[in-house]
Computed example of a mutant assay.
Amino acid sequence: MKSISLILILLFFTNFIPAQMSTSSPIIRQRPIKLDQKRIDLSLEYMKMHYGIIQKEPTIVPKMIVLHYTEGGTLESNIQYFKAPYLSSRPDLTDGSNLNVSAQFIIDRDGSIYQLLPSNFFARHTIGLNYCAIGVENIGGSKNPLTAAQVNANAYLIRYLSEKYPIEYLIGHSEYFIFRNTRLWKDKNPNYYTQKFDPGEEFMQQLRAKVQDLHLKNQP
């Protein structure tokens, strides 16, 4: 177990985003979620139960970026919520696993970007696609629309991740359902899904206009 933890710590530091890509690039701040044995075991259990994937470490090969909004709370309250390894106050998800929801990145309303997990570490954020998807949460919601600064910050992060990994798809959480019954959808429970509306159609249109040269797909 100690060797697994050491490997994951090394993975975390080798996957850090540089603090400053250029003088005009936003800073990427590190707010790491603790990679304790509980989270590791729960992640491995989720991967096996939902996708039939059996591995020694809960790592992924990212092919997709999924954008979300938090709907409520502040940056700090959401980070604190994600830190717990066990799920709480989400009865709609408890049948799926006790692993807490989380994301690899979270972006505040002023465009500040924070990394919570290594970009190739498994996170529970999008049913059916977690095994290949990087999740990006944005502070805001239906009553608190995402900002222009968040559009720019997401575009920057997407460009960075697309250079680092073989990213093929960029979707909003509301668009994930279209991947059901395709080769990318791996969840073994055909009835396990929820309806989502985040991060909003207008936000996705604005963002896609900024990264259209990357030619990322939004459907299978």
Rank of each mutant, 00 (worst) to 15 (best):
Thr147Leu: 04
Tyr160Arg: 03
Ser119Glu: 07
Val211Gln: 03
Ile127Arg: 03
Met64Gln: 07
Met21Val: 15
Lys217Cys: 10
Ser77Ala: 07
Phe82Lys: 00
Gln205Pro: 00
Gly96Asp: 07
Asp110Val: 02
Tyr160Cys: 10
Gln115Ile: 11
Ile107Val: 12
Gln150Cys: 09
Gly72Val: 10
Tyr69Cys: 11
Pro58Ala: 06
Ala155Tyr: 00
Tyr169Val: 09
Lys2Cys: 01
Leu11Pro: 05
Phe179Ile: 09
Leu214Val: 15
His68Leu: 12
Arg180Met: 14
Asn152Asp: 14
Asn15Cys: 12
Ala148Val: 14
Arg124Ile: 02
Asp108Ser: 13
Val101Ser: 08
Ile167Pro: 03
Leu146His: 10
Asp187Leu: 07
Glu137Arg: 03
Ala103Leu: 04
Asn152Gly: 03
Ile134His: 08
Gln104Val: 00
Asn191Ser: 06
Ile17Asn: 00
Ala84Glu: 07
Tyr165Cys: 01
Leu117Phe: 15
Ala153Cys: 03
Ile27Tyr: 12
Leu146Ser: 07
Leu67Lys: 04
Ile178Asn: 00
Ile9Glu: 14
Phe122Trp: 01
Cys132Trp: 09
Tyr69Gln: 07
Asn154Gln: 02
Ile54Tyr: 03
Ile134Lys: 05
Pro118His: 06
Asp108Thr: 03
Ile127Asn: 09
Asp213Thr: 15
Glu201His: 05
Arg124Glu: 10
Pro145Val: 15
Arg208Trp: 03
Ile139Tyr: 06
Glu202His: 06
Lys83Ile: 13
Phe197Asn: 02
Asn78Leu: 04
Ile28Asp: 13
Leu67Met: 13
Gln212Arg: 06
Arg183Ile: 08
Ala133His: 02
Leu184Ile: 14
Pro220Val: 08
Lys186Phe: 09
Ser43Met: 02
Phe13Lys: 00
Leu129Pro: 01
Leu184His: 14
Ser119Trp: 08
Ile106Val: 10
Leu35Met: 12
Ile113Ala: 01
Gln55His: 09
Trp185Gly: 08
Asn138Ala: 05
Ile7Cys: 00
Arg124Ser: 11
